[in-house]
Write a protein that binds this DNA or RNA. Sequence first.
DNA 1: ACTCTATGAATCC
DNA 2: TGGATTCCCTAGAG
Length: 578
Amino acid sequence: MGPTTRARFVHNRRRRPGPYASDDEEDQQEASSSSSSSDDEEEEEEGEGSGEADDDDEAAAAPSGKDEVEEEEESPVAAVRSGRKASITISLKKVCKVCKRSGHEAGFKGAVYIDCPRKPCFLCKMPGHTTLNCPHRVAMEHGVIPASRRNTNTSLDYVFQSQVKGKISMVKPQFLIPNQLECGNIKFHERRVTCLEFHPTKNNVLLSGDKKGLLGIWDYIKLHEKTTYDSVHSCILNSMKFDTGNDGLLYTASSDGTICSTDLETGIGSSLLNLNPNGWTGPRTWRMIYGIDFNAEKGLLLVADNFGFLYLLDRRLKTRIGHPILIHKKGSKVTSLHCNPAQPEILLSSGNDHYARIWDTRKLEPNSPFASLAHGRVVNSGYFSPQSGNKILTTCQDNRIRVWDYIFGNLESPSREIVHSHDFNRHLTPFKAEWDPKDYSETVVVIGRYISENYNGIALHPIDFIDTSTGKLLAEVMDPDITTISPVNKLHPRDDILASGSSRSIFIWKPKTEADATEERNRERAKEFVYGSGSQKKSNGKHENSSDDDSDGSPDGKKKPKKTRFTHTVKGKGKSKA
DNA sequence: ACTCTATGAATCC
DNA sequence: TGGATTCCCTAGAG
């Protein structure tokens, strides 16, 4: 396939049979050590518990731990036979870069990443298996362990049914996945994109922020219409919010410790808050602002810093109201803020202290949240559902998306947990699952995926659409030309459009039209005719073909779906699933 | 095909 | 509590 920019929305692939994963491991093991002895395999199979002598530890722990041993030219086989296990061992049996032991290797083999078997699963974080055979790594149509709905007979649920649900349209509008790449800009930003926001009224205008503090305004229909402001902030532009009373006004929050308002028509900006008035006095004092939201009813801007404090700003007076209030563990970052769309005085905050908290901003006091939602690790974001505001969606660095179905119900534990790969990586903008603002059923969310999957020999990182009511993976959006991770994703408030930020690039996705689909089918057919069955290799593949990923490939060379899926699984409340 | 690096959170004493 | 150290799928540059 040429350098097409067609998006890939793949579906209906079968799950590969169970044991393949371990086969893969062994295959790759043998490949890496040409003279694989039975010792190797045993050692690998056994794992930690069995008190093997760990002969290789010395070698593994040898000076500098790097594989700089190349002096020996003698046959590795001979070396093994002779029983010597000096530094030569390293060149014979490569050292795992993760656990520094020999006998196995972690890393990419082609487009497939082989985990270190000694570490917990990189997807679900549980020990005893790797991502290759993680029970949460599943095919799309099997990708879900159905979530149990919570008890439906409690009085609260009755209230919910009668009062809340009645107001929500039960008819789900047709849902179109914006899975086809419409356009992408290259090097628009010099550093990685950190946030995206659609203009609330101008339909084709997208705003973006990056790690250097650059603010970009971009009409993605008229591509030449781009404006950038590089003087608004001096470092990471973490978040932005429009003034709902004045579409032309944008508030931005930055790690430079300031909140700025920018008039998008004139470009004139003004500072609303500066938490570092004395400049740099060291990392212990430098304040950064991540969360920001706007209470339109009160004309109130709410922002929070990396020391756990919340600040209230009067939009018009451009002054602080009251004193900063500690809303998360002192000294820990507040990662996001969100005002409830239905009741703006209700605030949701997320923090590095592993909690998301619900507050009533009318009576703010430290240690008096309306509720504290415990998480396994840092909470990257927390959002009320966009229509009713009755649900809560959080993204946590423990690789779980959590949903609470009803904010006035029992918040002890989430209604559902969805295992999904969106781990922390210091070089990536934190992943945030976001609701589809157009989805009146308040179930669809979008989030980028960290770990890759092998797509016809290319490791790709799709953008996932997930139905949070069931955990079902609705779609994975990807393109063979986009090999980078897309942690930043935004769905258009009215149109079926997805904007994604991936490294320094921004991409716009639209639904595939019927004509597109037909054209693609024809192209595929033509290719099969030309090349015969199955040899549809990527001409532009940066990675090798996936054949090594499946050594039991069918002899007739017939193409079969080799794609393996890292997706997610739902843990419903009170569910039992091993 | 290397190597470097910008960097954030967890962990370990 | 805090400083040093470590680290698992990065992306881009040299």
